[in-house]
Amino acid sequence: MRSALLFEERSADPDRGDAVAGLDVTEARDRDLVRAIGRGNEEAFRGLFRRYAPSAMAVARRVVGQPYLAEEAVQEGFLALWRNPHAYEEMRGSVKAWLMATVHNRAVDLVRREETQRRRAENTGPHEGLVVLDDPAESVVDEMGLPEERKVVRAALEALPPEQRAVIELMYFSGLSQTTIAEKLSLPLGTVKSRTLLGMRKLRSTLSGMER
């Protein structure tokens, strides 16, 4: 139910500021594409797919560990937008974050349901940290300004204390639950929870520019 919770319908709230201040041109263009998708524009759908599928694939592959399951997660994420473009609400954040969260949710659902976690562990061994791929899509993405986003997000992650970063990365990039991480790292569950919260507060502050 994660995706339903995170992006469920809500009305605009005039009492709070937009979660994403200072929208850039890329975001404005993304929103135009989503509006066009709402009118059934297939080219707009292809446009968003070409722009974000490589990043979506990267995170999906990392979570599920198997290329065909990753493709499934990516397709389902984009198809969710095609089927219900109104599920994305501009007041709630950026298109790219919404898409990535949708794909990530799908990937986590897949990995838990299909128990590929066990197979992936057998194939790839222990947690490896962020993966840097030799990437033929890099040149395409370069043209779209995503390297800057990557730099900002990586810097935010690297600025975290290692113990907080480890917990957050295991959760997000390996699809592990807090309970599983506590077992894996031989830590009390409460410690895992507090590290998650502290780390995410810092990321929230850094990435949204909001002081806590």
Partner: peptide, 21 residues
């Protein structure tokens, strides 16, 4: 919900993009 959701969504961009068939 929205701000933590935005953080999590953007975390995907920490990874190098993967090739697409």
């Amino acid at each position: 919900r929205d701000e933590y959701g935005e953080v999590a969504g953007r975390m995907a961009f920490a990874m190098d993009p993967a090739p697409i068939r």
